[in-house]
Simulated assay, not measured.
Amino acid sequence: MLEVRNLEKHFPVRRGILRRTQGYVKAVDGVSLTLDRGETLGLVGESGCGKTTAGRSILRLISPSRGDILFSSRSLSGEGEETRRVNVATVSREELRQLRRDMQIIFQDPYSSLDPRMSVADLVGEPLYVHGIAKGAELRDRVEQLLVAVGLNADHMQRYSHEFSGGQRQRIGIARALALRPQMIVADEPISALDVSIQAQVVTLLQDLQEEFDLTYLIVTHDLTVVRYLCDRVAVMYLGQIVEIATAEALFADPLHPYTEALLSAVPLPDPAMRIEQIVLEGDVPSPLNPPSGCRFHPRCRYAQDICKKEVPEFRDMSEGRSVACHFADTLDLRPFGRSS
């Protein structure tokens, strides 16, 4: 359904009275990935790695600096065609407007992503009205169906967002994303702003909706416990680049990149009797304004050697459909999830 090739998003840094460009923050710097129909792909990494920018660039909520975003669109298909493959990065504004029916987003913060001046009926029904799909009584019926699908009811339609809890607000955001029956949804940290007691409910809801509405998910998150439970495959990002892609099962059982190993060591375990030594990465995260030479992870990597400082590792295919960018992926014996050493 989706193929991203060498996606880049560089933000200019301007200084001085004349606001001249002094450099670029390389938030996303050469990301490539694929997403199959009905699949759930997790895009993970620590804060500031560029995963949210990548997700928004794929939807062209942020215009990418370079790269191709090839998407099989149902709304832009020609007569007699099931889907049409389009480049989201280059389509016209009118075509992009039509593409919104196929590609939607669930925002991270349910408190700021809902207009407090609009009722729930208006928030969820606006996409249907704007695209001319429903109006009047039909619009009201569609909104009611969507609210029921996400665990709310018709009594909530005339209320406003400030009258709801965080979990209920996120359900409203999910209903709004479902309104146009999209093919793909980018969920940007869909549970990070919620209480722990509510997070499991929303994760279960996302799974149920995927089956009911035949959805494809790109889950942007830093929570690897959610990834393990929800995702089919995982792409690990560090400083604007993907360093490893694997199935969720393979990633947790046998990480190939040192950064993945460090992330897995920080995942809390459900059994308090198990004590796992966390791998503490030395130093600070390098600035995306001036990333390190060679492997971007080498200043914090405990396995780094001279070649890591000089040569950029090739992002190469490994066995079982895995890919990794590490010079020593074949020789390192990295710690899997749940093992202390």
Rank of each mutant, 00 (worst) to 15 (best):
L114R: 04
L70W: 15
D284Q: 15
A200Q: 04
E39H: 07
D330W: 00
I105R: 15
R142M: 08
V150G: 10
P110G: 07
F315H: 03
E79L: 11
R275A: 14
S192V: 02
V227L: 08
V148N: 15
L41C: 03
V86R: 10
A246S: 12
T53S: 14
G173N: 02
N290I: 01
Y160Q: 08
V148D: 09
P255W: 02
P270Y: 07
Q168Y: 09
L251Y: 11
D29K: 04
H162T: 07
M318F: 13
L123M: 11
A246H: 01
L35W: 12
R56H: 09
E8F: 05
K9E: 06
K51E: 11
R296P: 01
V312P: 00
F252M: 10
F107T: 11
V220G: 03
E211M: 05
S73Q: 05
V143P: 12
R275C: 03
L209G: 00
A235T: 05
V227A: 01
L269I: 11
D306P: 01
P291F: 01
I106T: 13
Q199V: 14
D122R: 15
A137Y: 00
I279W: 08
S113D: 11
G151L: 02
L2A: 04
N153Y: 02
Y238H: 03
L281S: 03
I198R: 02
I133N: 12
L139C: 03
R56Q: 11
P116M: 15
D109G: 15
N6Q: 10
L256Y: 14
A54K: 09
D141M: 06
I106R: 13
D68E: 14
L194N: 14
L180M: 14
E82R: 15
L70S: 11
T216K: 00
K51D: 04
D317A: 13
V236H: 02
A325P: 09
P286W: 05
D223N: 13
A262P: 06
V227H: 06
P190V: 00
L96K: 08
I174Q: 01
V13N: 07
M1I: 00
R300P: 05
V120Q: 15
V120L: 04
I105K: 03
R20E: 14
T52I: 06
F71I: 01
E95T: 10
D122C: 02
Q158V: 00
M237W: 03
Y129S: 15
R20P: 03
D115M: 04
D254R: 11
D208L: 02
R275K: 15
M184P: 00
E94D: 15
T83E: 14
L96Y: 08
D254F: 06
S119E: 11
T34D: 13
I17K: 09
L256T: 13
M103E: 01
F252R: 13
L256I: 04
S75R: 13
L76A: 13
E138F: 03
G78M: 14
G30N: 08
Q210D: 07
D214H: 14
L178Y: 01
G166N: 02
E212A: 09
P268C: 11
S73D: 08
R140K: 11
E163W: 00
N153F: 05
P291W: 01
